[in-house]
């Protein structure tokens, strides 16, 4: 049994390599994970130039999939500010 296993055993290093490559691609992409914070600040600044808005009402979210990343920006503009604009 053990001799059979010796010859049929699958190699584990390629799995390690592949798992690391996938994982690190993700981790590196989110390494500057302050990206969402930076985007949030800058988007807020741009919109605030034109309409008055509450800083807490701006949400920036980055979703990552294996093939695609989605940047979701959710800005809530108060009714009176929208009318004034």
């Amino acid at each position: 049994m053990s001799i059979l296993r010796l010859f049929t055993r699958s190699r584990s290093a390629p799995a390690a390599r592949e798992r690391l490559q996938v994982l690190l691609a993700h981790e590196r992409a989110s390494a500057g994970s302050d990206l969402t914070a930076i985007l949030r600040e800058e988007i807020l600044a741009v919109i605030a130039k034109h309409v008055e808005l509450d800083a807490d009402r701006v949400k920036v979210k980055v979703d990552r999939d294996e093939n695609v990343s989605i940047l979701e920006i959710d800005v809530e503009i108060p009714l009176d500010a929208a009318r004034a604009a």
Partner: peptide
């Protein structure tokens, strides 16, 4: 590493 059970230097 040669047996494929450890990451190789190049990996």
């Amino acid at each position: 590493a040669e047996r494929g059970d450890m990451l190789k230097v190049d990996d």
